[in-house]
């Protein structure tokens, strides 16, 4: 084996790959099963964007809190939420992360630092400020991270949060996962500034744009901003430019995309393929090692689906519990 040229140990590279692959297979499987009509409601898939969630989350511990959004499965898995419980939740089962009461858009596990996926776009940014404020006041060096898409970056909550975080000098990082589409609307049309770096500058905080399909680019940029926040340097913005392999939600015919766009992206901009190419070319990880992870991940997802299908449904008693701590 050659000398490791990457900023992560071999073990960490294996962890990162396993996480990205888990997200990918989780979403690919949901795509298939949703198409078969086995999943209630609707789901927003993260496939294609894995390098962003994992590249950032490799820096975080359970004390760091993230506020996610409607496209949250990737963030959850990367933050350490149990995959089987997530699958059961999406199937509406009582064994799910939220006892079947939240569904795809509301998976949370505060003990893992996952403040919740969120059905309201932009709502997570103030919550992440709250996480940063708690860290600041409680005197631990945790941080808050807000994940929004390019679409939600136009919400007042997001913009107010940039200012609040700057005024209070909060340890908060605003990640804009720019996949080019706010639902069906192009970022080029809906965001008036040319660069999110400019938007950040307008609020008095530093901004960085990276290629979100490049795991190592995300990892390094996020690492610097996170270190800065932990050291009291204050908030910042990280834009990850990335690719959404599927539609806004499952069932989206995606007619707003260009002819052949998805196929081209899968071929040339698949962050998993790019990661594999880097690490095998450098001779740090072998295809066999990565293939073995692929097999294990597929088995995990199969088991998660099987267990979710056979898990018990909530009962009438569950309808009225957990509205309040006490009432």
């Amino acid at each position: 084996m050659s000398k490791n040229p990457f900023p992560l140990s071999k073990d960490d590279l294996l962890i990162a790959y396993r996480m990205m692959k888990t997200i990918r297979e989780f979403e690919e499987r949901l795509h298939v099963d949703f198409g078969r009509g086995e999943i209630p409601g609707f789901v927003h898939l993260y496939a294609g964007e894995e390098a962003s969630a994992v590249g950032i989350m490799m820096h975080l511990n359970d004390q760091d809190q993230i506020a996610s959004n409607h496209r949250g499965h990737g963030h959850c898995i990367a933050k350490g939420v149990d995959v089987k419980e997530m699958m059961a939740e999406i199937y509406g089962k009582v064994s799910g992360s939220c006892r079947g009461k939240g569904g795809s858009m509301h998976i949370a596990d505060l003990s893992k630092g996952m403040m919740g996926a969120n059905g309201i776009l932009g709502a997570g940014s103030p919550l992440a400020c709250g996480a940063g404020l708690a860290a600041q006041k409680l005197g631990h060096n945790g941080i808050g991270m807000s994940f929004t898409g390019d679409g939600a970056s136009n919400q007042g909550t997001f913009l107010e949060s940039l200012n609040l975080a700057a005024v209070w000098n909060l340890p908060v990082i605003f990640v804009v996962e720019n996949n080019g589409y706010a639902e069906s609307t192009s970022v080029d049309w809906a965001v008036a500034v040319d660069s999110y770096v400019d938007r950040a500058a307008g609020f008095g905080l530093p901004g960085v744009t990276v290629d979100g399909t490049e795991f190592f680019a995300v990892y390094e940029a996020a690492g610097e901003l996170i270190k800065r926040a932990r050291e009291g340097g204050g908030p910042s913005l990280l834009e990850c430019k990335m690719i959404r392999f599927f539609g806004h939600f499952e069932g989206d015919a995606q007619t707003y995309k260009a002819e052949g766009e998805n196929e081209y992206n899968r071929k040339h901009h698949d962050c998993l393929k790019i990661f594999r190419a880097h690490v095998t070319k450098a001779g740090v990880l072998s295809d066999e090692e990565l293939d073995a992870i692929d097999t294990q991940v597929l088995a995990l997802i199969d088991a998660a689906v099987e267990e979710a299908i056979s898990a018990p449904l909530p009962t009438a008693d569950d309808l009225t519990t957990d509205v309040y701590v006490s009432y």
């Binding site: 403040m115 103030p126 919550l127 400020c129 006041k137 808050g144 107010e160 949060s161 609040l164």
Partner: peptide, 24 residues
């Protein structure tokens, strides 16, 4: 421990709520 806020009710009410889930 008492903090003035910018005139941004969405942001600071949300921050208070977020902080409440994180130990304050």
């Amino acid at each position: 421990r008492l903090m003035d806020t910018p005139l941004s009710e969405s942001a600071y009410i949300g921050a208070a709520i977020g902080a409440a889930t994180c130990g304050l």
